[in-house]
Design a protein around this nucleic acid. Structure first.
Lengths: 249, 249
DNA sequence: GCAAAAGTGTTTCATCTACACCCATGG
DNA sequence: CCATGGGTGTAGATGAAACACTTTTGC
């Protein structure tokens, strides 16, 4: 089991001279247009939705598109994604996470364009769209068919990413009003993860995490017994972040 | 809890005309040099190692660098990463995964350069380095200090990614010889995850996953009782991939 | 009073954890 | 025979899953 090769001193070949002019070096690299695409998920009427606009390319006429734009010359991509979201929707105060970079050379009909996908989850009720250009609106994720570019592929990837992420982080909370009932919370998990969950076990699970604060208030305007309303204790969560080892595959 | 706004028909503003010339559109985007950086982890002498070269930039003289190069004009990034690895190390048949794109506008001293990090794990013994230019060799991950560019940050990110990934996928198997003892397997997990594990529980865990095949052979050349050698049943693993729901944060 | 969802406990089972002794081999 | 790690089992705790009835409200 011993191995020796890697650390035996090996005669080093003569090296080319060090690069002095780093700007010239960078200028010699091929360069590529970069876009960011925002996959903004929301939850509404017991469905997972995603914000889309009509593509403004003639060849994709009628097709739906993610919210994207090119990244500025000197712009951090996180900032670009945030800017795109603000510009397209008028929303701010929304958390975006980088998911993946898509680089198929034929993904854009106008030539090589890289795109970096960003993902977000938000409460459609609490974030009014202030701009509606290009028919911006919420679409049911389940019923989406064709989209412009490779945006369906990106969306599908982000949805899987979201399902995983959602089981490890309390992202889902962002989809609910500040005060929410356990039924709403459970609906949300059932819809996004596409599973049925046992109500009692679900409640036990969340109560045992001890991250919900009982407001003492109750639902209103429901045609049945109103449920208690809770808030999520983000501060407590930040302090107690998961930190365990579990080999599982 | 009802909300109505998003799906109420909203008068659509007059739209700008559709874009016809997509090439002109793309040509109007700012474009940016892209590189890929390969973070190639290996395991040797009971340590996690990473393949590095000396930076060939004068301003980083003496500093270590990840294996990177620019991505071709029309090149898929996965291919670019693979190419870089082959060119730099002479290895092939190695699995690389995209981890994240780093976009700080000041990360490269020669101007704006995006980089996409790719990560791999391999068995240093089974993949001989065939090229040693730029002092390519394995470095202990723990003892690394300064590196060129933002490569330390990238490496740290990839290491965390690896630790997580390793708990959900049998990546670690790639770091061992085809036939390995349970001690070797456990060492690997302990070192990479930076924890101590109970030997009996570790064995039980792996045996219960039922993915190890007993070869009937034993270690050789060890100064103590030799352990059984196992192989990993990749086929079985492929069929049984995890598919469960567990909310845990 | 009826429909609809809220709220609540227990049992079973699987999994994780902690823990200690004898065994086989090389030197 | 000694040093070194290989190999093994059990009991207790914890967490997940299955499962049914009573309560509260709006209508």
């Amino acid at each position: 089991m011993k191995k020796e090769t890697a650390d035996i001193p090996i005669p080093v070949k003569p090296q080319p001279p060090l690069v002095k002019d780093v700007h010239a070096l960078v200028a010699s690299y091929p360069s590529v247009p970069i876009t960011v695409d925002c996959v903004i998920f929301g939850f509404d009427e017991n469905e997972l939705k995603v914000l889309l606009i009509r593509s403004d390319l003639e060849m994709f006429s009628g097709k739906w598109s993610l919210l994207g734009d090119f990244a500025g010359d000197q712009e951090e991509l996180d900032d670009a994604a945030y800017r795109v979201m603000c510009d397209r929707t008028g929303m701010d105060d929304v958390y975006l996470e980088q998911v993946r970079t898509f680089s198929n050379p034929h993904r854009h009909p106008g030539g090589r364009v890289l795109t970096v996908a960003y993902c977000s989850l938000l409460n459609a009720e609490h974030h009014q769209l202030k701009i509606l250009d290009n028919e911006l609106h919420w679409h049911s994720v389940r019923s989406l068919q064709e989209m412009a570019f490779d945006h369906k592929e990106i969306l599908d990837y982000c949805y899987k990413w979201l399902q995983k992420r959602m089981q490890e982080h309390p992202l889902g909370i962002n989809l609910l009003p500040q005060k929410f009932s356990l039924r709403e919370l459970q609906n949300l998990y059932e819809v996004i993860l596409d599973v049925k969950l046992d109500r009692r076990n679900f409640r036990k699970k969340f109560f045992s995490m001890d991250l919900l604060t009982d407001t003492g208030e109750y639902e209103d305007d429901v045609p049945h017994r109103p449920g208690r309303l809770y808030t999520f204790n983000f501060k407590k969560y930040e302090k107690s972040k998961r930190n365990w080892i579990g080999i599982d595959f």
